[in-house]
Design a protein around this nucleic acid. Structure first.
Lengths: 175, 175
DNA sequence: GGAACTGTACCGGCTGGACGGTATAGTGGA
DNA sequence: TCCACTATACCGTCCAGCCGGTACAGTTCC
């Protein structure tokens, strides 16, 4: 039996995220999303009655992915800090894509998206602080992760950035 | 004599940036920019013949502001690192606004904007590395600055973030 | 068992409004 | 008289959202 194929609903959300990430929110029109998902516009609107509902659907899925990620982080064999830094650079995973997409929406002054992102960040911070027992260090590492993430999503990524960060964090005994 | 009033051209660019920052690129329409600048649409198009020219005008002004900022950074009394971190949080200056606005444009896959931002970042990095004589530390500090900036522009800013960073950087002897 | 009906999943055409851009006539100040 | 605008009227395109329809798998009732 082949793996269960992705539902139309999921394919529509995938398409929405992909367009947001690669082309920006101006390009993520309902027509474009439908075309990318290989669904008619009517089919898209059957699953999501409005663009707003499409955003809601995306953020709901993001929160689910985020909860799984925080759990994986606290149990990672390389430790939470290593896991956090590695996953702050865009690996092209579904979760990364969803995260970047939500960032695009948040910038349109959408509080639903901002709240979802803030909640995700808080989840990571809790794991970092508990592991390190040092609030300043935890906050600083989180900022470094944000920086890695920002550079990555703005096309400013430095090849060796992660290596430089590891070097500095070793001096601090955080890795 | 009151301060020389801002030229219409500058007011249009200000308005464009303000809309990009506060509402996102979808909201930065020519009509909206004209209204925000208190200029007629015809007046706007008198100065910038197209939306593309408006973007070019904004990026040109940004590069000028950036050159001045890098110079100020290398001569700052509190040192380049302190100056860099302070100015990474959005102080609401014209330069901050221009920077955030360019980020919005860069996300629409506009290479002009990406190039402008990359050049600005390179300018800051050169100053940091020369001052610190330590590439890893310079890169890491730049990432922290990016993180501060990202959080600020996404509404995720932590009140005491800067204090935590100072604490950690003091342990590293970078401040 | 089969006709009548229901719910689900989708297609594709349409409309009204917004947007980028053009055009043009007019105005006030240097 | 030019420059720097304002005001208004358009045009073509794009976009969100709506609607009528189709296909088809189940269910109900006789």
């Amino acid at each position: 039996m082949p793996p269960a194929e992705r539902s139309t609903r999921d394919r529509v959300l995938d398409a929405f995220e992909t367009l947001l990430v690669t082309q920006g929110s101006r390009a993520a029109t309902l027509d474009a999303v439908a075309a990318q998902a290989e669904v008619s516009k009517g089919g898209l609107l059957y699953h999501f009655h409005s663009k707003d509902e499409l955003v809601d659907g995306m953020l709901t899925r993001l929160r689910e992915q985020g909860a799984r990620d925080a759990a994986a982080m606290s149990e990672a064999p390389e430790g939470p800090v290593g896991y956090y830094l590695e996953t702050s650079v865009d690996s092209g995973s579904d979760f990364d894509r969803a995260l970047i997409a939500a960032g695009r929406i948040a910038q349109e002054n959408d509080t639903r998206a901002s709240n979802a992102l803030a909640d995700l960040r808080e989840g990571w911070f809790v794991v970092l602080r508990e592991h390190l027992g040092d609030e300043s260090l935890a906050r600083t590492i989180q900022l470094i992760g944000d920086g890695l993430y920002f550079d990555d999503t703005t096309g400013l990524a430095e090849k060796n950035a992660l290596q430089h960060v590891r070097d500095v964090l070793q001096r601090l005994g955080a890795l």
